Simulated scan of single mutants.
Amino acid sequence: MSTRTYYRGADAVVTDERFVWHTTSTRVFEIRELQQVQLVRGQPAARRYPIMAGGVVLLASAGLATLTTPPSILLGLLTVAIPGALAVTLSRTRSRTWQLEATYRGRDVVLYTQSDPRVFNQVSRALRRAMEAARPPTTGYGLVVT
């Protein structure tokens, strides 16, 4: 019997037997031993743009005090305004991370983390299909006469 692959990507592989997450170290989970799998919506990933822009603004404002001609004042104001606007824009477009968490061999684990919703949905859908396929066959839940 061959192994069926539900998803194969750069950072994860989902087969009918295993869930493999290629992160700093490869993590392998047996599908049949996963319990209580759940999707967790994480917090937005922190970005350092406002901190960097604040530093630029401080440096630029110190330099503004020494400017005396109108062109140099305009240049100084642009030096302050552009990083500030960039920091505000980028801080509002922070990406959100999602996680798949489960109980594996009696321990709570993080199966997978991703900030790209398209990839995360593909991986979570593949895991759901693999888990459904790994369940023992039922006899119709008692609703079919055999």
Results as ranks from 00 to 15, higher is better:
R135W: 03
L59V: 00
T24A: 11
E132C: 14
A134K: 07
L34R: 01
M131C: 11
V20M: 02
M52D: 04
Y104E: 06
S25I: 07
V28L: 13
T97F: 02
V110F: 01
G9V: 02
P136S: 15
G54H: 06
R107L: 12
I73K: 15
R48Q: 09
P136D: 14
D16A: 13
M1E: 08
Q114M: 06
G42E: 04
R107D: 12
I51V: 14
T139P: 00
V145P: 01
V56D: 00
S124V: 00
D16T: 12
S2P: 14
I82C: 07
T24W: 11
W21A: 05
G9E: 07
L111N: 07
P117W: 03
A10H: 01
G106N: 11
T113P: 06
Y7C: 06
M1S: 13
L39A: 01
Q38V: 06
V40C: 11
G140I: 09
Q36M: 12
L34P: 03
G9R: 05
R94H: 05
P136K: 15
F120H: 06
T113F: 07
I31T: 03
R135E: 10
T69W: 09
D11C: 10
M131I: 12
T79F: 10
L100S: 00
P117L: 06
V13R: 06
E17M: 02
A81K: 12
G9M: 04
T3V: 08
P50Y: 11
P71W: 10
N121T: 15
E33V: 02
S95I: 09
A45I: 14
D11S: 13
S124T: 07
G63P: 03
Q38E: 05
S72I: 04
F120V: 05
L100H: 03
T93C: 08
T97M: 00
Y6V: 03
L111V: 05
V14N: 04
P71F: 02
A102N: 07
R125E: 03
Q36Y: 13
T23D: 11
A134S: 14
P50F: 10
Q36A: 14
R135Q: 12
S124G: 05
V14C: 01
P117Y: 01
G63M: 09
A46C: 09
T113G: 06
S91K: 08
Q36D: 12
R118E: 05
V80S: 13
S91F: 13
E17K: 06
L64N: 00
G9D: 02
A126Q: 06
R96M: 02
T15D: 04
G55A: 11
E33M: 08
T15P: 02
G9Q: 08
W21C: 05
D16C: 13
G140Y: 10
L77F: 14
R125H: 09
Q43K: 15
P83T: 04
V145R: 00
T97I: 07
L90Y: 14
D108K: 15
G54S: 10
R94Q: 10
R18Q: 14
P83H: 08
G42L: 09
L127C: 01
Y49Q: 12
A45F: 12
S95N: 09
V20C: 02
V110W: 02
